[in-house]
Write a protein that binds this DNA or RNA. Structure first.
Lengths: 153, 153
DNA sequence: TATTGTTATACTCTATAACTATA
DNA sequence: TATAGTTATAGAGTATAACAATA
């Protein structure tokens, strides 16, 4: 009966099999991006999803929660929580829809548009920072690849 | 006092500001990949993280949990749970280390190596499927970009 | 003192089921 | 009947704090 092998403490851990998968590399790159984005948004009291929701509400005044959910690819039930948080911060209001009494018309407040403008600039800086080691053509190629992958889903 | 605007129900929701961010496109592509990967691994009783952990244990026999955590970029505390699950499935064993009595030497069992071999083939198919709309140079460019982004973190 | 594995805990993201009021 | 917003709940991923055993 052989003694079980022990991985040497000084040898690097081989992750060659995982690195062969594009998805694994994307998950790791995404981890770096998400960590930096969370740091970027924290001073504004926003998280990735509340920032995204605020962006869509600012750009589409009167948007309904159900359409916001579809645009974010999340369930309606979760959007309720994000809008709750944005409303409690005073950045978004829920007005009754005049066309469908079941629905709401989401509006960004003046404070909401202001925090969004500042956060958006910070996030744009963050995104440029993440692309720093890449040439313009590489960023363009990355964009194309990501959109094609998403579209194939 | 103006009546609040209401986004027309038939108009598309504009996400132009978010689409300008590479990170947003990556998050959405990652969502598509993760959903397909979860479906791929489900029949094997594996999830993304247990599959990744199993892969590293198979390829690095005798690996310590603390090094596994570092390789996966997760906390030691979480690795405990993944190894628990792999151990309960009979795919991984925790042997005492002969060199450091605090540590464990993780080993894949025969059943673990077998399920890994089958899951790995299915995951490789999944990864190719995700890259289906891309030419080989585009995949190579994507790989390069992702690794550079991760390295900059 | 520092590190290893561990437990407990908490927060975020995501999904499903079920309710209500409208359509 | 179907849909919009909502509530409650649960699973998965991730992080921190604290502990016992060992270095």
């Amino acid at each position: 009966m052989a003694v079980p092998a022990e991985h040497p403490a000084d040898a690097p851990v081989s992750d060659a099999a995982l690195r062969a998968l594009v998805g694994y590399n994307m998950k790791r790159a995404m981890g770096v991006i998400q960590a930096d984005l969370a740091r970027t948004l924290d001073p504004f009291g926003l998280r990735m999803l509340t920032f995204s929701a605020l962006s869509l509400i600012v750009e589409n005044p009167g948007l309904r929660p159900s359409r916001l959910a579809a645009a974010l690819s999340v369930e309606r039930a979760n959007v309720v929580v994000y809008v709750d948080q944005l409303e409690q911060a005073g950045w978004v209001s829920r007005a009754p829809s005049t066309r469908d009494r079941r629905a709401h018309a989401l509006q960004a407040t003046l404070a909401g548009r202001r925090v969004y403008a500042r956060a958006r600039a910070a996030v744009a800086d963050h995104d440029r920072r993440m692309m720093n080691g890449l040439r313009a053509e590489q960023v363009a190629a990355l964009r194309t690849a990501l959109q094609r992958i998403e579209g194939a889903g």
